[in-house]
Nucleic acid binder design. Structure first.
Length: 620
RNA sequence: GGCCCGGUGGUGUAGCGGACUAACAUACCGCCCUGUCACGGCGGAGAUCGGGGGUUCGAAUCCCCUCCGGGUCGCCA
């Protein structure tokens, strides 16, 4: 909501000199010129009320034939979303007719003149209500969906977040530098969006997946502190929190260690939340956990820390129990882990089945639940009869009590246990934990908990191609103490890469980079690049590093995701003005689209349609 | 590419083998109403149920194919 005086009025006095949402009792008696959209019309036969809406909010306008017959006649024709200009006087509402649910509810504007600036067809969906609309329709009529107050608030929030970041970093000596959108394809990482070159047949530019190498070159150039609100492009499949083009706060600093970057981020986002979204409760200081801790306690590297329900390890108990399924999992090198859902012991069977389905969808073979009696009892007094479970008979009461203790469970809680190979077990439990957080209302929408996850592994094993790959990117520095492990045991080498997470989303990712040629060459060797290959792929960067590259590192928070979390939205589409569908289409413009033969000829392109796919542009 | 959910007047939903001549709310059109704020009252118009094929005496409803939207796994250095 705009506050009075926060922005200059959007008009200079010809059509509009005041924003609707700013009017209060202190304006009573003022003559104002308002302009905006008809939010709603209430016709009482002898008197007409219009809720007039502009981006600042809503104010009630009263049309009374006794003091403005012409305006009253005009108001009779008005319909939702017509654009009007109204001149009138701000009046205190008659006693008893104030509307406390409206910021301007103490006053109303008595219309003296009303001009229709533009009528409107009935819109294809409600703009004056926050009701569900088919996603395709929202995108097709994006300019109408954006007219909704919720979307306008989201875009305003986004503006304020970006402005805050620019000001904050500028005040701390950071320079914003633009980097090219037309750049070079790199075979690593995500699929590139390609742009054909007219002047060089068969050659292509690529849109940046991120300005990663460019910002490192800016460090070599001696800029020391750089940032950019940068658009990034990745031609990969979409998700609720992934769009093909998105915006990063790209940032890089010279002469820094990991701690410097993390402290900077903690300081920036603490100030940002406190000043831009002061109604949010922020946890300070930001929790820090290693990758290994995150996986052990939450089963994921992007845990939602607004609630506990930490995972406990029951593998050693499972090894000794009488439950054949668990024992076999442990024998085969698997793990048995679980957590306690507080007060959920009496949950209906149907909900357990839903949880089981969820666990299986994440690759688990099943879900074991133990309902631990009634609240108020003590754990020590728990009897076998009070434990309700399909598999309770395979465990001694001491084993049940020990699992409950480790999970921090109390009587009345439900233990959820998954057994299997570590990766799927953790994935399933993480999903279950998130689901229980939602079901039990533990994920407070007014709370934001940022956290740093550190010490990611430097490499990941690609089983398909039977080789090591960079977990982050090949310029990420290994931790000094793990350097001796590099060749001997690459899988155990930890990196100076870090993520920032918030309420269950990964909102930033970064690392300290390698600036030492010898280390960089060892990394390339482990990744399987010959010196010639490394030269071909990354020659420009390697060469730059030979000319006095300073130690440097950085991070890249995702603006869209951060705004999404702060706006309490579940989809990125609600915080991007013109987003694309899950199949990467722009339904408003109809992109992507075919182009003319002439354009193709100029670009030296010929289109070969796949046999399996329909030819031509996507239907719209 | 796999799996899951959805598509019914303009919009949002209900209906899920026969009582559907498809219901409700709202928007829309007309009439009435001078203090409402999701104003209210009366009346009206508006969908052959995303598209195609099939099963059946009978399909919005069951089956197959397909299109669109969403979620998710793979993917996203």
């Amino acid at each position: 909501m705009l506050k009075r005086g926060e922005y200059p009025s959007t008009g200079v006095g010809m059509l509009k000199d005041t924003d609707c949402g700013t009017l209060t009792l202190s304006d009573v008696g003022r003559q104002v010129a308002l302009a905006g959209w008809v939010h709603r019309r209430r016709d009482h036969g002898g008197i007409i009320f219009i809720d007039l809406r502009d981006r600042s909010g809503i104010v009630q306008v009263v049309f009374n034939p006794s003091y403005a017959p012409d305006a009253y006649r005009t108001a009779d024709a008005l319909r939702n979303e017509w654009v009007v200009c109204i001149r009138g006087r701000v009046e205190r509402r008659p006693p008893g007719t104030e509307n406390p649910s409206l910021p301007t509810g103490q006053v109303e504007v008595h219309a003296l003149a009303c001009q229709i600036l533009n009528p409107s067809r009935p819109p294809p969906f409600y703009i004056n209500e926050d009701t569900e609309v088919d996603e395709a329709l929202r995108l097709r009529y994006r300019y109408l969906y954006l007219r909704r107050q919720r979307l306008q608030r989201n875009l305003e929030l986004r503006h304020r977040v970006v402005k805050f970041i620019r000001d904050w970093l500028s005040a701390r000596g950071f320079w914003e530098v633009e980097t090219p959108i037309l750049t070079k394809s790199t075979p690593e990482g995500a699929r590139d969006y390609l742009v054909p070159s007219r002047l060089y047949p068969g050659c292509f530019y690529a849109l940046p997946q991120s300005p990663q190498q460019l910002k490192q070159l800016l460090m070599v150039a001696g800029l020391e502190r750089y940032f950019q609100i940068a658009r990034c492009f990745r031609d990969e499949d979409l998700r609720a929190d992934r769009q093909p083009e998105f915006t990063q706060l790209d940032l890089e600093m010279s002469f820094v260690e990991e701690e410097d970057i993390l402290n900077l981020m903690e300081s920036l986002f603490t100030d940002l939340v406190e000043q831009v979204t002061p109604h949010k409760r922020l946890r300070k200081p930001f929790p820090r956990l290693t990758y290994a801790e995150a996986i052990a306690k939450y089963g994921t590297d992007k845990p939602d820390l607004r609630f506990g329900m930490e995972l406990a390890d029951f593998t050693d108990i499972a090894r000794q129990c009488q439950f054949e399924v668990f024992r076999r999992v442990v024998q085969q090198g698997g793990v048995v882990k679980g957590f306690a859902a507080p007060g959920y012991a009496d949950c209906p069977r149907r909900q357990i089945e839903e949880l089981t389905t969820l666990a299986k969808s994440k690759g688990a073979t099943g879900l074991v639940t133990l309902a631990l009696g009634q609240p108020g009892l003590s754990l020590e007094a728990l009897t076998p009869e009070q434990v309700r479970s399909a598999v309770a008979r395979h465990f001694t009461i001491e084993q049940v009590q020990e699992m409950a203790r480790r999970a921090g469970a109390r009587p009345g809680d439900l233990l959820l246990i998954v057994a299997g190979e570590p990766a799927t077990t953790n994935a399933a439990l993480s999903a279950l934990r998130t689901e229980m957080g939602a079901r039990l209302g533990l994920a407070d929408p007014n709370q934001v908990v940022f956290a740093f996850v550190t010490q990611f592994p430097l490499f990941e094993w690609n089983a398909e191609e039977r080789r090591w790959e960079s977990a982050h990117h090949p310029f990420t520095a290994p931790r000094d103490e793990d350097l001796p492990l590099l060749e001997a045991d690459p899988g155990r080498v930890r990196s100076k890469a870090y993520d920032m997470v918030c309420n269950g989303y990964e909102v930033a990712s970064g690392s300290i980079r390698i600036h030492n040629r010898e280390v960089q060459e060892r990394i390339f060797r482990i990744l399987g690049y010959s010196p010639e290959e490394a030269q071909k792929r990354f020659g420009h960067l390697l060469e730059a590093f030979e000319y006095g590259a300073p130690p440097h590192g950085g991070i890249a928070p995702g603006i869209d995701r951060i705004v999404m979390v702060l706006a309490n939205e579940a989809s990125l589409r609600e915080v991007i003005a013109f987003p694309k569908t899950q199949s990467a289409q722009d339904l408003l413009f109809g992109a992507p689209s075919e182009v003319s033969e002439k354009q193709l000829r100029e670009l030296h392109l010929a289109v070969v349609h796949p046999e399996t796919a329909p030819s031509g542009p996507p239907p719209s």
